[in-house]
Design a binder for these strands. Structure first.
Lengths: 146, 146
DNA sequence: TACGATCAGATCGTACGCGATATATAATCC
DNA sequence: GGATTATATATCGCGTACGATCTGATCGTA
């Protein structure tokens, strides 16, 4: 009834492949900061809102502690964040930016704009894609309940 | 001059996050086939065109031998493909489907349609996203020459 | 033909993602 | 208040991604 699925017809592959391509473009810029892409995302979240738990970071990034804990330990080893148990609830670990981590924000903020210039996308196209991907996200999250 | 970049405004994060969400939806279906998502992509490419080199598979998937070699060895260990040096050019390794690997295609072909039903996306939306992501891909590839 | 350059894969090390499980703390219920 | 359950994070194992490097095969050219 329907023809065989081809790689190039699959939305999932288009996304998968574009995501990796994005990573390759980000790489040289993030090398300047000494961060990997996921580390940069975590720092972005902390720059938006300091002093968060591992859980709230994970919710923001759709990542679990099994991914975040080692990543955050690396950020701590680099001196960008400080990890400490919340005295009020010892189960939680609060992540706080160090002065060094806060200082990195200036360089970090410049990255997306620099990238936008490099890639040179139409603003309206980007807006439309953000909307479409948002719709997709909702459908995907509904299909794979946590 | 411009405000600080926020996670939710970044196209790269939308893509990154949607890609992972897609993976979560694929997981249970691919578990049935005993394949991971990248392994499934490799099989898709081979179902389209059997008897390819590691390099041509890599070009198709935008992956290098450092990723593909172990992945293909796993597919070989599972009995889905056969890896052998090309006698005409011993540098190349040709990947061929085994009867078992070919037999898997029937189940494999059903996956995307099943997924489409589960997610229930509008066909026109998908078409537009494929176009937009194609444009993006070109811009990204131009910005990060191999 | 001989030798340096190039090419195709493979190997190694690091860092994600994530399923499964462990551990410790808090909340709940008799 | 003591046992049970739930919650937050950590640990472990496996499979990608990918930079850097290695190995072996082929090509170019003198």
């Amino acid at each position: 009834m329907s023809s065989d699925p081809k790689l190039d017809n699959l939305l999932c592959f288009a996304l998968y492949s574009a995501t990796h391509a994005f990573g390759r473009v980000y790489k040289p810029l993030l090398d300047d900061l000494g961060l990997t892409y996921p580390q940069y995302l975590a720092m972005l979240v902390l720059w938006e809102q300091d002093d968060q738990t591992v859980g709230s970071l994970g919710q923001r990034l759709s990542l679990e502690s099994n991914t975040l804990t080692p990543l955050l330990k690396r950020l701590e080893a680099m001196g960008h964040v400080q990890r400490s148990r919340d005295p009020a609830d010892e189960r939680q670990v609060r992540i706080r930016l160090t002065p060094q981590g806060r200082a990195l924000q200036e360089k970090g903020n410049a990255v997306p704009a620099c990238l936008a210039r490099t890639i040179g996308l139409d603003v309206e196209d980007v807006r439309r894609m953000m909307r479409d991907i948002g719709t997709l996200r909702k459908a995907l999250d509904a299909a794979a309940p946590r």
